[in-house]
């Protein structure tokens, strides 16, 4: 086994996904198969190979420090599931 049910549950918590037992079971099996498949990358010796982040070489994309108009509160909130004045409202965050 490449991955256990417990690990899958841990990953689901990290990813903030409430998964049903049946989903967890299916995922454990599928992830195990996929992780088993990707194991083949270990056939390759990649010692000293520089990882590729972008396939096209690129660097230094900047913007100047110039103010652009914001979109406004109404636009910012137009899709908000819950509002509190001009804020977004969420269930209580306990500190």
């Amino acid at each position: 086994m490449k991955i256990s049910r417990e690990e899958v549950e841990h990953v689901a918590r990290l990813a903030r996904l409430a998964l049903q037992p049946a989903e967890l079971e299916a995922l454990t099996e599928q992830m195990d198969a996929i992780l088993g498949y990707v194991e083949k990358l270990n056939e390759l010796d990649t010692e000293g190979i520089i990882p590729t982040a972008h396939a096209v070489p690129m660097e230094n994309a900047f913007r100047e420090d110039l103010v652009k108009p914001s979109i406004g509160i109404e636009r910012a909130q137009q899709n908000a599931p819950s509002k509190d004045g001009s804020c977004f409202k969420v269930p209580k965050v306990i500190e």
Binding site: D65, L66, V67, K68, S70, I71
Partner: peptide, 23 residues
């Protein structure tokens, strides 16, 4: 700086919540 690190919104403080925002 006058603007945010990754967008052109002003970083003036003390404004109405969410008035200094963009996508």
């Amino acid at each position: 700086t006058k603007t945010k690190i990754f967008c052109g919104c002003s970083k003036d403080f003390g404004q109405q919540p969410n008035s200094q925002t963009c996508p």
